[in-house]
Design a protein around this nucleic acid. Structure first.
Lengths: 188, 188
DNA sequence: ACTGTTATTAGTATCTAGTACTAATTATAG
DNA sequence: CTATAATTAGTACTAGATACTAATAACAGT
């Protein structure tokens, strides 16, 4: 592996890369991979503000656990900013690295679809809503770290069927437009 | 909390419930909650085949990490069963509990959308493909533990634009139908 | 009441993967 | 060469166990 002594900065970048690849690696394993002592690894972690393996593991697990419980608890993908049941709603979603295919820089389309679809469902005044049809257009690619604001408007109601139009913007630029036909199964 | 000694079976059910609510709880905390010694908690865990807190945490974190990396590593959502680049493809997805809203039994629509959309992208002979438009119809609700087979067919090609029709079936029953317009950015 | 069994509690030695600290050695820059 | 930064080493301690031995308490059956 590393035959010659790496400059500190280079080694610390290597350390970051290793941890990104395998968050569960121990200091001992890192020391071997980077050909330095375990104490040096620990000094590096201290300097870089990187917690120990058990803490990192706990963080990952906690995030995952909270994501599962909060996603399943809330029907909305993203944060609700405004809501007029039966009429309109606004939600905000921040794009993260997880939403991107590795080796790419564009957020995968289904995340936008779901932000839109879940908001379209959320504006319906019913406890159980099913999507029937959707027609969507992706207008521009979206990157990581972008704040997407979705606006949903109920444009038509026929009995239990609602036609909801959703537009997603990044700043003033529209990046996604969709029309969802949803059905209210149980009115509130 | 528990004032009276609980029957072993009852206590073990309580222990399960506690762990489901908080997977990160220590044996010490469990001992206090269930008013028994730490040794008894450990015997219970042994008998129930429940690993220690660090192992549980590691399991949760590993699952989460692998879910994220596999989602991002694989362009396809589900398992590819057949592929004729430029023409057609078949993929299979098994629905899991995570795909369901709590208190409900129906798989959320975006999973079907994504199975279909990712297959529509996968049949295109290009290294980078973006979805432009999609028109989809949900024909029947889908439950947990169901095997969904998606068939994608390229029905039209105009330059770099492909029109792909995707049908998802559960057995012989069609549960989803969609048409995706995708653009090949970099031909293979 | 007595006896055997199950359940519970307690204690000890050891493990893993560190943290926090002191101190010595090596490498580097001026 | 000297001072400083970087690296290495060692010690005491922590947390949350496992694996084991052993003692005590509770319960069931006779």
């Amino acid at each position: 592996m590393a035959e010659r002594r790496l400059a500190k900065g280079v080694r610390q970048e290597r350390l970051r890369a290793e941890l990104k690849r395998d968050p569960f690696i121990t200091d001992e394993e890192l020391a071997q991979k980077l050909a330095v002592s375990i104490q040096t690894i620990r000094l590096d972690r201290l300097e870089l503000g990187i917690p120990e393996v058990r803490k990192r593991t706990r963080l990952l697990a906690t995030e995952a656990f909270e994501r599962v419980t909060s996603l399943n608890r809330n029907e909305l993908f993203g944060e609700l900013l405004a809501l007029e049941p039966g009429k309109s709603g606004i939600s905000m979603m921040l794009t993260t690295e997880e939403m991107v295919l590795s080796r790419r820089s564009v957020v995968r389309g289904h995340y936008l679809f779901f932000q839109a679809n879940s908001l379209a469902v959320a504006v319906i005044p019913a406890t159980a809503v099913l999507t029937r049809d959707a027609e969507v257009h992706y207008l521009a690619p979206v990157g990581v770290g972008e704040k997407l604001i979705a606006h949903a408007t109920v444009v038509q109601v026929e009995g239990r069927h609602y036609r909801v139009e959703v537009k997603i913007r990044r700043g003033t630029e529209e990046v996604f437009r969709g029309v969802f036909v949803v059905v209210a199964l149980e009115e509130q």
